[in-house]
Design a binder for these strands. Sequence first.
DNA 1: GCAAAAGTGTTCATGATACACCCATGA
DNA 2: TCATGGGTGTATCATGAACACTTTTGC
Lengths: 229, 229
Amino acid sequence: MKEVLPQFNSTFSIDCVVFGFDEGELKILLIERNEEPFKDWWALPGNIVEENESLDQSASRILHELTGLSNIYMEQYYTFGDVNRHPQGRVVSIAYYALLRLGGDKALKPISSYAKKANWINVKDLPKLAFDHQKIFDKGLEKIKRRIKHQPIAFELLPEKFTLTQLQNVYEVILNKKLDKRNFRKKMLSFGVLKDLEEKQQGVSFRAATLYKFDKRRYAKLFGKEISF
Amino acid sequence: MKEVLPQFNSTFSIDCVVFGFDEGELKILLIERNEEPFKDWWALPGNIVEENESLDQSASRILHELTGLSNIYMEQYYTFGDVNRHPQGRVVSIAYYALLRLGGDKALKPISSYAKKANWINVKDLPKLAFDHQKIFDKGLEKIKRRIKHQPIAFELLPEKFTLTQLQNVYEVILNKKLDKRNFRKKMLSFGVLKDLEEKQQGVSFRAATLYKFDKRRYAKLFGKEISF
DNA sequence: GCAAAAGTGTTCATGATACACCCATGA
DNA sequence: TCATGGGTGTATCATGAACACTTTTGC
């Protein structure tokens, strides 16, 4: 049966824009390539899709190999297929963005070794990227800018317990503009999806802020999928 | 160089959800398949991407072969890659939606012959579709529902000269809800991107409506890309 | 006591919604 | 003259935007 399909030398890959938020900065995970082409260049983590895995599975696998983490929030957002985007042949790349909580215990534990090293790099300070990865990144950033206005994705970038100021910070960095503190809090709390943990920040040298938690159940109940953050 | 790439029996294709609006109804173009698998089933128009064309080019080509038209408004929106979505092997499909003006002179002039016939079918009355095409359609419809709220895509479904009632109809059918006539007109006109042609409808058996035209230049000037229709 | 961030309300402008009647035309 | 859709305005409500000071805490 299989030989019925038309065929030429082509393949497809996944590339991931992995966003992390740390100390008020939005970063992405870049790897320094070990192999030609673009040896020694910085690139988005990515890999070839294997025969027996779906695209989503492949993206999860790549992230797992890279970070040792599972259950990362990811979404497919665009597919890049210009004829000459890969110097060694026709490679169509399906792009995903991922969001994860940085800081604290979760250091990177890379499993695979196709990269010399992986690094978190501030999105405002990106080096020149291999292939068409700059384009892929740009579109990914644009995507989460839109997304964060209507879906509760900001919480994926924060620890489970967070302060309202940290949350506002995520919005400010992603949207790249200052927001009004009072209006932000009023609006956020008005959705009724933040649970006041009646618990304070620890170890800060100033007034400790209240910790909140995103209440997923309540969110799902109130709004199927739609809201305007 | 080319043999460096990992490879297995796989390929990629484009599938298109081609929307057309006619007499108050939203329709899509379906073809009846001529070949196995799913011979005699209805399916979305689509084809294998060729070696020397980008994804966008491929989508345009497919639409051109199918309709004889060029310069159709299209956008890539999702890529479907489940392992068993195609019974003959691994086929990853990149989905596009297209919008075009129906009615009047523009009958279909199919060029290719992989289909027995192509038909416009009301989206409320779709038959069972081949492969995972129902899923592809669902996601496409969802996409234009969102899109129409922020981008001027409704005009792509109308003739160059249209009445406000026709425009409202497009919104109502895509969003699947009634809108208030006065509020709709007020809002639409307030954007300042509709040009009053000082010309009336012809050949109607009731009061003729004013014809308008979408003013692309003015739109581009006023709003880079963003607006809330 | 001071530095640093937490926390808190009101006013105003704008946009969204609800709602009903007269007008022009062709048959 | 009647059937059909074209065309119009106002009042109310909800939401978003602007804006500054007091409180708490650790050092």
